[in-house]
Design a protein around this nucleic acid. Structure first.
Length: 179
DNA sequence: CCCTGATTCGC
DNA sequence: GCGAATCAGG
């Protein structure tokens, strides 16, 4: 083989597009494609103009987010929002930590389309495991999500998303706190 | 420390 | 055009 697979052939680009729009992460896609790093994937994605799949362009009040230097980014990215799967058997999440106050415009209902990963009991619950409770805490069948939690947070990516919902407050603030 | 995507810039 | 390095964040 002349090509070690390290080039963006049409097929690979197509697969990239598919997987990216499908919601896979860059690293996952990179692993799927092989012979490429996640950086390569991300770079390609941007070059293809596929970036910001879940984010919409904000023509007003933006910029100055992560640009320490010169930049001439093209803010033209019409991103189609894929329909989200509807839910199911969510067991009344113990959401009680919402500083969002009362906002009739925003509802705190989220869909838990997350596959039941390896739930664990309190015994097997490790530090880096999602502490999202599932079921009735009074029953012996009570378990925790157990998925990989975001470091520094008690929940996995998905549950963190539903736990700390709104706060329509952007904390995009410039900070230079690097050692 | 694990991960995510975003951006820059030398190649 | 490519992607490693870097950045900013969960």
């Amino acid at each position: 083989m002349i090509d070690a697979g390290a080039t963006w052939t049409d097929e690979r680009v197509e697969l990239l597009k598919k997987l990216w729009t499908d919601g896979l992460s860059a690293s996952q896609i990179a692993a799927e494609l092989g012979n490429v790093t996640r950086n390569a994937v991300i770079g390609k994605v941007h070059r293809l103009g596929l970036s910001g799949r879940a984010k919409d362009a904000k023509p007003a009040a933006s910029t100055a987010t992560a640009r320490p230097r010169k930049a001439t980014r093209a803010p033209s990215a019409p991103a189609p929002l894929p329909p989200q799967p509807h839910p199911n058997n969510v067991v009344v999440a113990p959401i009680a930590l919402q500083p969002v106050t009362q906002e009739p415009s925003v509802y705190i209902e989220d869909d838990l389309a997350v596959p039941v990963s390896e739930r664990v009991t309190i015994m097997d619950l490790r530090e880096s495991m999602c502490r999202w409770p599932m079921g009735d805490p009074t029953k012996p069948e009570f378990r925790f999500c157990g998925a990989r939690s975001i470091t520094g947070l008690p929940y996995c990516t998905h549950h963190a998303r539903v736990a700390y919902q709104p706060v329509a407050d952007r904390k995009r603030d410039r900070r230079l706190a690097r050692a």
